[in-house]
Amino acid sequence: MTVKIFDTPEVQDFVKTVAGFDQTGGNDRAKQIVHRLVGDLFKLIDDFDVTEEEYWAAINLLNALGGQTQFGLLSPGLGFDHYLDMRQDAIDAEAKRTGGTPRTIEGPLYVAGAPEAEGFARMDDGSDPDAEVMWLTGQVRDVDGTPIPGAKVEIWHCNSKGGYSFFDPSQDEYNMRRTIYADSEGRYTARSIIPSGYGVPEGAPTDVVLKSLGRHGERPAHIHYFVSAPGHQHLTTQINLAGDPYTF
């Protein structure tokens, strides 16, 4: 199909109306973002000759994603979370804030308010007796290698079946979630169990999107970290467990 209408004055005026440019109320930044977003989508419909059937199939998929609260899963799957990290890396590089542990995405499963401990914490509640015990030890240091006493280390991960507390109703609150304040040498220790890898639910909306791209939704076994201290930049990172088939 050769018919394209996006660049016509009628459509350009219409996009401005949709974005509220002709209204005095609202939020100016929201208007600018919606104008760009709607305009880009309108142009995509033109450029790819999107049919009504394809459009409504996409709407139904978006409804399913929202109904199953899976936008948090799809976001990292489509690279948005990592792109935000890439932008922040570039901002840091421009400001000459380089070195240290690389940042990695937070993911959608962090929960604030985990129990706090000084120096050491046991993270699991003992409800998974067949799981393998894991010890995590580390030292928080600045980019010059100087230990940071009292650094705040927040750690969270899934259980041996791939479920996270608060999202897995079979687990107690804050299971495998702790906040540990490092000792005078910046050291911390945690006892927990080895988490498993996991994937998006088979046949779920996120799975449908990824499979349409020829991709899978599997994650290697991993452990999440927030590390912070006064006067230092907050770090969000993860470690992947060696030996997992999806760890590259």
Rank of each mutant, 00 (worst) to 15 (best):
D47N: 13
F71W: 06
R87N: 10
K96S: 09
D92L: 12
F80M: 14
E54G: 08
W56K: 13
V38F: 14
L62D: 06
G25D: 03
L44T: 06
D28R: 10
H82Y: 04
I45Y: 14
Q68Y: 08
L78R: 11
L44F: 13
Q32S: 06
T104W: 15
G66F: 07
Q70S: 04
G66M: 09
L44H: 09
Q88T: 08
T101Y: 07
Q68H: 07
L65Q: 01
F48M: 11
G79R: 11
L84D: 12
A64Q: 13
T98C: 05
I33T: 09
T104F: 15
T104I: 10
R36N: 05
G67K: 05
Q32H: 04
H35I: 00
Q88V: 12
T24A: 02
H35W: 04
D40K: 15
Q88C: 09
A95E: 10
Q68G: 02
E54L: 09
G100K: 12
F80H: 09
K96R: 15
A30Y: 06
H35M: 04
D28L: 09
N63L: 14
L41R: 11
T24E: 04
H82K: 14
D28H: 05
T69Y: 11
N27L: 03
A57V: 00
F42L: 15
L44I: 05
A93P: 00
F80Q: 14
T24R: 06
L73I: 04
I91H: 13
I91W: 14
V50M: 14
G66S: 05
Y83L: 11
T101Q: 15
G67F: 03
T104Q: 15
V34Q: 06
Q32W: 00
D81F: 05
I33D: 01
P102Q: 12
L62P: 00
A64M: 02
P76I: 06
E52C: 04
V50K: 12
T24W: 10
A64T: 01
F80D: 02
G77P: 05
R29W: 01
E94Q: 15
S75L: 08
V34M: 12
F71E: 02
G26M: 01
T51G: 01
E52G: 06
T24V: 05
A90C: 09
F48W: 10
T98L: 08
E54Y: 03
D46E: 08
V34F: 12
T69Q: 13
